[in-house]
């Protein structure tokens, strides 16, 4: 079953497709510049020792961002129903 969740809620090793980036201003621009735009595949590579920031793999590289930023990114994931 497909479901849209916030990036923060993704589990380690989970895959997903970005559906919406709602961050605004400088932050929003930066996130997009780094390649987080709709229809891009991502998967969660890991989390820092204190569960934050999160490291995600997209395109051909690894990007880290804080949960606070991940809240502004909606991802479509496959959830076992």
């Amino acid at each position: 079953m497909k479901k849209i969740i916030k990036m923060r809620e993704m589990k380690e090793n989970q895959r997903g497709i970005i559906k919406k980036v709602s961050a605004r201003g400088n932050m929003g621009r930066r996130i997009r510049e780094m390649g987080l735009v709709p229809d891009v595949q991502i998967w969660v590579q890991g989390r820092a020792p204190l569960k934050d920031p999160v490291a995600i793999k997209l395109r051909d590289f690894t990007l880290t961002l804080r949960n606070q930023e991940a809240d502004n990114i909606l991802v479509e994931v496959e959830e076992p129903s």
């Binding site: 932050m27 990007l63 880290t64 961002l65 606070q68 930023e69």
Partner: peptide, 11 residues
């Protein structure tokens, strides 16, 4: 406020 953290982990 705290600023965003968006950083690449280079290979």
């Amino acid at each position: 406020p705290k600023t965003p953290f968006v950083m690449e982990l280079p290979p």
